[in-house]
Design a protein around this nucleic acid. Structure first.
Length: 693
DNA sequence: CGGACTTCGAAT
DNA sequence: ATTCGAAGTCCG
């Protein structure tokens, strides 16, 4: 569809997008502003002499940007181009350095010193060179933002399937550019005005960052607590549950090994399935899934706790009109005081005073003791659907773990409805940065905010003794200064040999399935639920297999012929909604581009998981040896669990050239011996269930 | 949009 | 044993 008068650069593979030929070096001209290669012979007005070749601007950079934007920017863009030219002319810089400097200019960010940000803010974790390189190895540079050449921060994806940092992208747009910096496709105005963060890519990057620590993970430590192992992997799987709503579902298996009365962050040693713990910013579809990862156990109640012991977590959902959320700190309202008799689970009306009993008292105990309280935020319940959503607002609905907070004070006051409510001041105290910041470090102790309502408060409670969870000045991090309260549950459960046995099984199972599970969780197509094949990213930042996405609109035209009385009138555009949200994506559908960068990463991960398969099996067999006396009943017991097995693998494999096979020929004889046709693991049940949605 | 229906853990 | 809770879904 390329018209002759449209100028196009070379694509990511170096082929001219106009004539489809890959030009030789002599025939390639590189723009000195944006560093994009162009095919000389396809240019409408190629440079006339050598001098102008050296400092050549491509048609996109030399021409005026959008008139309105150019007017708004006035003379500054001229200065910018001059500065960029200067960088390009500097022979002492490598290409990468030039790219970085260009990006600094465009983004307005000035970093005098490369290492500065890496060294600052101690935190012991040290984003040293080693970690960085393994991180890059893993992603193989395929996701790098074209502006800054780094792993994209807050990645956004253009409809043409290219990924950039949100900030870099916005600066580019701010310069009046309306074409993709990589392929020169036009960027639709909606994307330009309101780029959405691609949360799947965020997950990719997070996984990549963790890959090193996971790879180095040693043998599993003794679990502390495991229960509900006979439950399904996912809540809401039975037919009955589907009929009656999600509340009917048996809540799923608990994946982490913390006791239900565990305080504070959930760390890697209690996460045998992933060996990463529950990370700040982790999101779940609903409260069932959140519960399975141990973050907030009650399925309905907003507060997890015991009145004599303390509260472990709270859910912040905006269900109480008196709540105020300021991010790093917020005011929380206690429970009770509402008449929920019968089935009025949604009654918002207060009909009597709240007192410090039950869960409210549990929160007060945590306040007095200075325990860390996990905070779960219900997304899209605090923020209205209607208000213009910022780039930072997650596009998914669900629950997000925001880290641990301390309750610095609590009191009672008259609520908006006249009845007294219990109030709690939560202040963040987590070693990981909050999901909404780009900080490298977690919280530092901060002064308490001033709370006007305290003047009218009664029953004010403050901490008297020193807090259990506090900031350690020497280590520069939050930690338990006093031992956390001992779990009252775990000891009992550990004493039960039956539980122990099941726990071991669960851990084994978790290990063998974890890679695949994570792939599925992070890269599942929102339609087929399998790992994405040929991923496409919508402008609203949702990801699907190309075929699923197209399938969803099969038979629907984007243009409707309006006819009345036999006469054809003007054609009218049809609005087609994204399968995951109400965004109109009919324009995007017209020219569907695969997110090849994302696809590459998925391929890498798939390969990696194949390679991991063998070591995992080996470890499994070792473990089976040392508990062989228990093995007899293992196989018989498990067979009825109609688990959702991943059936799509054979299909996928058959479509792709089998690189894995080729590589394996190195150690053929041994490889064949190791490789069984069907894994012996008991979770490979016959996949009779074609369990769709 | 509001009511009926369901689940699980905790507190009593 | 019984009650209740910052839930989720279907149905009218």
């Amino acid at each position: 569809m390329a018209h002759d008068n449209i100028q196009l650069p070379c694509d990511g593979d170096g082929a001219c997008m106009r004539c489809k030929v890959t030009p030789s070096a002599e025939e390639t001209l590189t723009c000195c502003t944006c560093a994009t290669p162009w095919h000389v012979t396809c240019l409408a007005s190629p440079p006339e002499n050598l001098a102008s070749t050296v400092q050549w601007h491509c048609p996109d950079c030399s021409g005026d940007p959008l008139p309105s934007a150019a007017a708004a920017m006035d003379g500054s863009s001229g200065e910018l181009f001059a500065a960029i030219r200067e960088i390009e002319a500097d022979g002492s810089l490598t290409e990468k350095e030039k790219a970085r400097k260009r990006q600094e200019l465009v983004s307005g960010r000035v970093e005098e010193d490369d290492d500065k940000e890496k060294k600052g803010k101690g935190k012991g974790k040290g984003k040293g060179k080693g970690e960085e390189s393994s991180f890059l190895d893993f992603l193989d540079g395929s996701l790098n933002c074209s502006f800054c050449m780094q792993i994209p921060e807050r990645p956004v994806t253009t409809p043409c399937g290219h990924n950039f940092c949100l900030k870099c992208f916005q600066k580019w747009i701010g310069q009046g550019k309306r074409t993709c910096a990589k392929c020169r496709s036009t960027i639709p105005p909606k994307m330009a005005n309101q780029p959405r963060i691609n949360s799947t890519l965020v997950s990719v990057i997070r996984m990549a960052k963790l890959s090193k620590s996971n790879a180095a993970a040693g043998p599993l430590k003794v679990y502390h607590f495991v229960h509900n192992q006979d439950r399904p992997d996912k809540a809401f799987t039975t037919e009955r549950a589907q009929r009656a709503g999600k509340a009917n579902a048996a809540s799923g298996k608990i994946f982490v090994t913390v006791p239900p009365d565990h305080f504070g962050p959930i760390t890697a040693e209690n996460d045998p399935a992933r060996n990463q713990g529950v990370l700040v910013g982790e999101c779940w579809e609903d409260r069932f899934e959140c519960r399975q990862w141990g973050a907030h156990l009650p399925h309905i109640s907003g507060i997890a706790g015991q009145s004599k012991y303390g509260a472990q977590s709270v859910a912040l959902s905006g269900g109480y009109e008196d709540d105020e959320d300021h991010g790093e700190w917020f005011l929380y309202t206690g429970s009770g005081g509402r008449d929920l008799s019968g089935n009025k689970r949604t009654n918002k009306k207060q009909s009597f005073d709240q007192t410090f009993v039950n869960m409210n008292e549990a929160l007060r105990v945590s306040c007095k003791m200075g325990y860390p309280v996990r905070v779960l935020l219900f997304l899209l319940m605090c923020r209205s659907h209607k208000e213009k959503r910022s780039s930072y607002a997650p596009e998914k609905k669900g629950v997000r773990y925001d880290g641990v907070y301390r309750i610095e004070k609590c009191w009672r006051k008259a609520g908006k409805q006249g009845f007294k409510v219990c109030r709690y001041l939560f202040v963040r105290c987590d070693n990981e940065p909050a999901p909404w910041t780009s900080d490298e470090h977690g919280d530092m102790p901060r002064p308490l905010p001033s709370i006007p309502e305290l003047k009218k408060a009664t029953d004010i409670t403050e901490r008297e003794e020193s807090p259990s969870w506090d900031f350690d000045e020497e280590e520069n991090r939050w930690k338990w200064k006093k031992p956390p309260p001992p779990s009252k549950k775990s000891i009992m459960e550990l004493a039960d040999p039956e539980e122990r046995k099941r726990a071991r099984e669960a851990i084994k199972q978790a290990r063998t399935t974890s890679v695949r599970e994570r792939l599925l969780k992070e890269f599942g197509c929102l339609i087929c639920r399998d790992v994405m094949n040929l991923p496409v990213t919508t402008p609203c930042a949702h990801n699907f297999c190309k075929s699923c996405f197209e399938g969803a609109f099969a038979g629907k035209n984007t243009i409707r012929e309006r006819s009345r009385g036999g006469r054809t009138l003007r054609s009218q555009k049809i609005v087609l909604h994204c399968p995951s949200c109400p965004t109109d994506i009919s324009d995007f559908l017209q020219n569907l581009q695969v997110n090849r960068e994302l696809m590459d990463v998925i391929e890498t991960l798939k390969k990696k998981s194949e390679e991991n398969q063998e070591p995992a099996e080996k470890e499994l067999s070792e473990e089976q040896e040392d508990e062989s006396e228990e093995n007899a009943d293992l196989d018989s017991g498990d067979s009825e669990t109609g688990k959702k097995t991943e059936k799509a693998d054979p299909d996928n494999n058959s479509q792709k050239p089998k690189r894995g096979r080729k590589r394996r020929k190195v150690g053929t004889t041994q490889g064949v011996a190791d490789k069984k046709d069907s894994p012996s693991s008991p979770l490979q049940v016959q996949s009779s269930d074609v369990d769709l949605e």
